[in-house]
């Protein structure tokens, strides 16, 4: 494709990214660096602040669409702290799956692919995209949550009992390295599309059109990185290497969840997440 076509594709994916993902990297950066003019997130650092934070999630003024989306699942009285945190994270994750799905459908050519292949690409790609999306929300001290209204400290997450305390640490470690690449939102949009359009996912029926689509997005990504980040000629190669790390990270995460399901009898896995993780790794 001509570079004008590639730039048009980048613009289209960037617009879709901004339309479907409420907490972009630039917004997260502003919140994390305290540049939101007094509208700083509520910090959850212990059980008491977790209970108070719950109130903030329900009461903070949000645009109508976001307010509808952030309604929490019904409270279960006397629920164990760890299970309660896990349930909240799951609920937000299920919402994020919907956002990623809408973004995925906007990738030119995606909805013309075989329906079976669309399901497989989404099933395998969605957690990788969500993990990447988490990186800009994190710094060394914690992570934003609930559309940037909450900041949950890393120490609090580490203070949860085993095995819950082990779940977020690998994501913080990945985020620290990923954030060094200093991508912007438009780079992220293209990278997400590249992840989704991976032609080597197990069970795909018709690989060729997927690889063709991915090739075009890769060209658009390479062109964009060269244009926006001219001082970092290795950025494209470095970013593609992250895809290997992501697969390993997600595979470990899914194994962790399967183990949790066996060990934690009171833990319920969200049906949508259950569907995605079943027979995944």
């Amino acid at each position: 494709p001509e570079s004008a076509d590639l730039r048009a594709l980048s613009r289209q994916l960037c617009l879709s990214y901004h339309r479907h993902f409420p907490l972009t990297k630039s917004k997260a950066k502003a919140i994390l660096s305290g540049k939101t003019h007094g509208n700083s997130p509520f910090v959850i650092h212990d059980m008491k602040s977790l209970t108070a934070g719950q109130y903030f999630i329900n009461c903070r003024q949000l645009p109508v669409l976001e307010r509808q989306r952030s309604v929490l699942p019904p409270e279960e009285p006397a629920e164990e702290l760890e299970l309660s945190v896990f349930r909240r994270i799951q609920f937000r994750s299920a919402e994020a799956v919907q956002e990623v799905t809408e973004f995925t459908k906007s990738i030119p050519g995606f909805t013309e692919l075989d329906m079976n292949d669309q399901v497989i690409l989404l099933k395998y790609g969605v957690i990788e995209v969500m993990t990447t999306m988490l990186a800009p929300l994190m710094n060394k001290d914690g992570t934003l949550f609930a559309y940037g209204q909450i900041f949950m400290t890393r120490e609090f997450l580490k203070s949860l009992r085993k095995p819950f305390c082990e779940m977020m640490e690998p994501k913080f470690e990945f985020a620290a390295k990923f954030n060094l690449l200093e991508l912007d939102d438009s780079d992220m949009a293209l990278f997400f599309a590249v992840i989704i359009l991976s032609g080597d996912r197990p069970g795909l029926v018709n690989v060729k059109p997927i690889e063709d689509l991915q090739e075009t997005v890769l060209q658009a990504l390479e062109l964009q990185l060269k244009t926006i980040h001219p001082d970092c000629p290795q950025l494209f190669a470095k970013l593609l290497q992250k895809m290997t790390d992501l697969r390993q990270l997600v595979a470990n995460h899914v194994r962790h969840i399967h183990l949790l399901k066996k060990q934690e009898l009171q833990m319920c896995l969200h049906p949508l997440l259950q569907e995605i993780m079943r027979d995944l790794y």
């Binding site: 919907q98 799905t101 079976n116 497989i120 969200h270």
Partner: peptide, 21 residues
């Protein structure tokens, strides 16, 4: 595959209506 991934399938097919979570 469709049977095992009913929600994903629905999310992919319905353009605007939110899935009951």
């Amino acid at each position: 595959l469709k049977e095992k991934h009913k929600i994903l399938h629905r999310l992919l097919q319905n353009s605007t209506s939110p899935v009951e979570l």
